[in-house]
Design a protein around this nucleic acid. Structure first.
Length: 417
DNA sequence: TCTGGGGTCCTAGGACCC
DNA sequence: TCTGGGGTCCTAGGACCC
């Protein structure tokens, strides 16, 4: 049996948590660069604000209705997320963090326990300890747990336990196909065109047809809806397979020197994430993008993947290769709006791939990176950095509505009035 | 003027091996 | 007329997730 837990309107709920006077008020949280809406309180949803709406297009509507607008504050969200996960972890022997606001938990092997009661208690504890509103779905497979969670939200319940297939059958024909986990925009179009409107309709299809239309993943979803387990919970501490840092620029960039600053800065982030999870990368991908919304601009989306001479997580080594990649794809004459760096081919830090033709400097680099991490942890991110990351960083993103870091900076802790 | 950032998995096709 | 049969590995692109 699986439980799927998620936090309702997560980013908006985090902002409200430290501003209780915003209870019942319209709240939206904007993406990096304050570009578009990525989280909404129920009141904002009721107003008709959609996920992904551009800020400048809904600005008037928000202001007219007295909405509270926030820039994304990932330091705050990451910390609140960790608090919830830690609370939940006490209720299971295995928990898989699925995203910043969701996880799956194994809740089997508990003979004699009343599941409804167990889930209700677990929810109360998390709400009490973190202040975050959560919803819980329980089912025989991960897909059914997700299904139960969604159904709970639809029914305005705090949790829903679908521990028998009878309970699934009772609601599956009222469940819209687009709400199914694994059905996105193009499958939605394909399925509704074939007359499949509900999860029940989908489950009645021939498995061969499902696989042909939606690959093996669609077939897995189909099986899971029948109660056959296909998704296994991964180990919580598994290394990720790719680590990416990418961001839009504040203004269009045309000069190589500023793109170098940005790419070097993103590379430093990637290298530091690699070190945190004790991994090294074998390949680095660098990409640039122009603004696809500007029909009057020439479009250019270059991307290149380069091999490192040997696996590394050193900021200096990775930066050297990332800049080489950037110079290979950079073409003057375009208005670049975004760039990014991805580490791929990730291996455990111990397994070094030596190269016959290149002198190995791994130990020195590891020592240097460790020292940088220590200094930056003590004096703040970016205190010690590679020179090419730049000093002014005039391309850096806009965050006009940033809230305090209530839980991660001493200066920002709320004081009694 | 202004339109996010971070991931996963699967498939097809090409390069290459014997 | 007629040009093998069996693999592996890698990459790009497309679907999905939050």
């Amino acid at each position: 049996m699986f439980a799927h837990v998620d936090i309702n309107n997560f980013y908006a709920s985090c902002q409200r948590l430290f501003r209780p006077e915003l209870e019942g008020k319209i709240i939206v949280v904007l993406s990096n660069n304050d570009g578009c809406v990525i989280a909404r309180s129920d009141e904002a949803k009721a107003l008709g604000i959609k996920m992904g709406d551009a800020e400048f297009q809904v600005r008037d509507l928000l202001n007219k209705n007295g909405a509270y607008i926030f820039s994304s504050n990932y330091a705050l969200y990451a910390d609140m997320s960790a608090r919830m996960m830690n609370n939940l972890a006490r209720y299971t022997y295995m928990l898989m963090v699925y995203s910043i606001d969701e996880c799956f938990m194994a809740i089997d092997h508990m003979p004699g326990v009343d599941l409804e009661e167990y889930i209700a208690n677990m929810r109360d504890a998390v709400v009490q300890n973190t202040g975050l509103p959560i919803t819980i779905g329980v089912g025989k497979t991960a897909s059914l747990a997700k299904f139960a969670n969604r159904a709970a939200k639809r029914a305005r319940k705090k949790y829903m336990v679908l521990d028998t297939m009878d309970k699934v059958d009772a609601i599956i024909n009222d469940f819209d196909i687009e709400d199914l986990w694994g059905v996105g925009f193009s499958y939605y179009k394909k399925l509704t065109a074939a007359g499949i409107m509900t999860a029940g309709d989908f489950r009645r299809q021939e498995p061969g047809w499902v696989q042909k239309q939606m690959t093996i993943q669609g077939l897995r979803l189909w099986r899971e809806l029948w109660g056959e387990q296909c998704h296994v919970l991964n180990d919580l501490f598994e290394r990720s397979k790719a680590i990416c840092s990418s961001k839009s620029f504040n203004t269009y960039q045309t000069e190589l020197c500023y793109l170098e600053e940005a790419i070097a800065t993103y590379t430093a982030t990637v290298a530091s994430k690699l070190r945190v999870q004790e991994s090294m990368a074998l390949n680095i991908n660098v990409f640039l993008r122009t603004n696809k919304h500007r029909k009057d601009h020439d479009q250019y989306y270059p991307s290149i993947t380069l091999k490192l001479p040997f696996s590394s997580n050193s900021t200096a080594e990775l930066t050297k290769v990332a800049l080489q990649a950037l110079r290979a794809i950079y073409t003057p004459g375009y208005y670049y709006m975004k760039g990014g760096v991805t580490a791929i081919g990730i291996v455990p830090a111990g397994e070094v791939q030596y190269d016959v033709f290149t002198e190995y400097q791994g130990e020195r680099q590891t020592e240097l990176s460790g020292l940088m991490d220590k200094i930056n942890a003590r004096y703040g991110k970016g205190t010690l950095r590679v020179a090419i990351e730049g000093y002014k960083k005039h391309w850096i993103m806009k965050q006009d509505y940033l809230s305090p870091n209530y839980t991660t900076r001493w200066q920002d802790i709320i004081k009694p009035i």
